[in-house]
Design a protein around this nucleic acid. Structure first.
Length: 433
RNA sequence: GCCGCCGUAGCUCAGCCAGGUAGAGCAGCGGGCUGUUAACCCGUUGGUCGUCGGUUCGAAUCCGACCGGCGGCGCCA
């Protein structure tokens, strides 16, 4: 058996600080420097980073191995843990034995490469090793974990909807067709319709998973494959819907601020979780704000991204815009009983121009009203037969929302683009690696 | 779908406007240095100038088409 079969996780060494003990660490070399008779090897094992040092005078034969090392070689090191203020983190391992487990070719991502976003995404399979990308992806993982924690603790059941679907969730939306044994099906763009079926089973359900949009959007807030947290809540009205989203968002943000200090630090981000309540304004009020600041958008049109920025600049935390006109929303939105031009809907918009994070609202529960809306939007009634049938077998008021994971991570981490917030981004022009 | 910008060494870029046989920094390689943190010092390898075509005695440089990338708008999570 090889001597490095068992090893300490680097994070555990920093936690327990076994000064004077002999430990084995193994991982990838992320930094190398040799100064005459002293060598320093920075090792990364996924859990953390630690420095190994070695003096020629102490171990001349080991030093010959070290002379041939290069960055990203995978090595195992056995040595003594010592405290040393000169080492990063104040601890280092004085090597007594080193074995090269796997050699690396010359690492292509050099210091100057950080300026070249295209090159970095071409090398995304390697770039994800960097501390910054690692931090973002770790925060993404924590965001998803916190979402599940919140949903699980608040009576929601995780519900998996199909990826292959027969028809669109929303009119006009562009779908990816897939050949399916002689039929054409599409990649899902939302779990919502299936969740509306599931509330009769569980009352409250959520789905955290991928969605697909075949839109040739060239922006920093769009991906063709993205993840969202969607949920559906039986008996909830618009206010209840927003209350849950607000609680969820605050829970996730506090959790990230609490559990991801190190990662936020590496990113240089001073993230302050928003304190509730989040502001709520109506579409009509938001439009007035945008128009008073130079927007030409007229009532009934959806906001442009400029409008969104104009309005968001007056807030320092995410805010709700509610009661969008029916002309801007999809067919399933409940119309406002007080003003049928409006829907019981909302968007959650991030400040500082990061744009829309989430969207949601109350759904139409009544069969005839839903049929009427489908016809008005000139959608094929047949495509929604099972969805309509839900209205025939007990359909209480219900609401839900969807929040984009990449958009949330982007806002938290202050990233220039959602492409940074997913391991392997898919855009119209990029689907590899 | 529309608009704009950019393709020269593994990476970042200069050279292009005023056409004359390809340059720097980093990375790599060789050497030196006993505490490096983006080390430093000396030396050195490396390029069908995105592709195809045109103009020209001569094209990285001028013109056209195409390909690839980046950014903005629209659409939206």
């Amino acid at each position: 058996m090889v001597w490095w079969r068992e090893a300490e996780r680097i994070v555990d060494i920093f936690r327990s600080k076994p000064i004077g003990d002999i430990v084995i660490v193994r991982g990838w070399i992320y930094r190398l420097s040799r100064i005459g008779g002293v060598a320093f090897i920075g090792i990364r094992d996924g859990s953390g980073y630690i420095q190994v040092s070695l003096k020629r005078s102490v171990a001349p034969s080991l030093f010959e191995i070290v002379d041939k090392l290069s960055v990203e070689d995978v090595v195992a090191v056995r040595g003594v843990v010592v405290e040393d203020k000169r080492a990063p983190g104040g601890l280092e391992v004085r090597a007594q034995d080193i074995e090269v487990i796997s050699k690396s070719s010359v690492w292509p991502i050099t210091r100057s490469a950080v300026k070249s976003i295209g090159f970095l995404f071409d090398k995304r399979h390697l770039w994800i090793r960097s501390p910054r990308v690692r931090s973002i992806l770790k925060i993404r993982s924590e965001v998803c974990r916190l979402i599940r924690e919140y949903m699980d603790e608040n009576g929601f059941v995780e519900f998996h909807s199909p990826i292959f679907v027969k028809s669109a969730c929303e009119g006009g939306a562009t779908l990816f067709p897939v050949e399916y044994f002689g039929n054409t099906v599409y990649l899902t763009q939302s779990a919502q319709l299936y969740q509306e079926a599931a509330i009769a089973t569980f009352g409250r359900v959520y789905t955290l998973g991928p969605c697909f949009r075949a839109e040739k959007s060239r922006t920093r807030k769009h991906l063709t494959e993205f993840w969202q947290i969607e949920c559906e809540i039986a008996f909830a009205d618009l206010d209840e819907d927003m209350r849950i989203l607000e609680e969820l968002l605050v829970y996730v943000c506090r959790g990230v601020a609490d559990r991801c200090r190190e990662e936020l630090d590496i990113l240089g981000v001073d993230f302050k979780p928003p304190t509730p309540p989040l502001p709520r304004i109506t579409y009509t009020e938001a439009l007035e704000i945008a128009r008073s600041r130079g927007s030409e958008t007229v009532w009934g049109e959806d906001f442009s991204s400029r409008d969104e920025s104009l309005v968001s600049s007056i807030f320092d935390k995410p805010f709700f815009v509610t009661h969008y006109p029916a002309s801007t929303r999809s067919f399933y939105h409940m119309l406002d009983p007080h003003d049928p031009r409006l829907t019981l809907s909302f968007d959650l918009i991030a400040p500082e121009g990061y744009g829309e994070l989430a969207t949601g609202g109350q759904r139409i529960s009544d069969y005839d009203t839903l049929v009427k809306r489908i016809d008005e939007q000139r959608l094929p009634r047949g495509s929604f037969s099972w969805y309509l049938e839900l209205r025939m077998y007990g359909c209480p008021p219900h609401s839900g929302f969807g929040m984009g994971i990449e958009r949330l991570v982007r806002w938290i981490c202050k990233l220039p683009s959602v492409r940074m917030a997913i391991p392997f981004p898919r855009t119209p022009d990029r689907f590899e690696p």
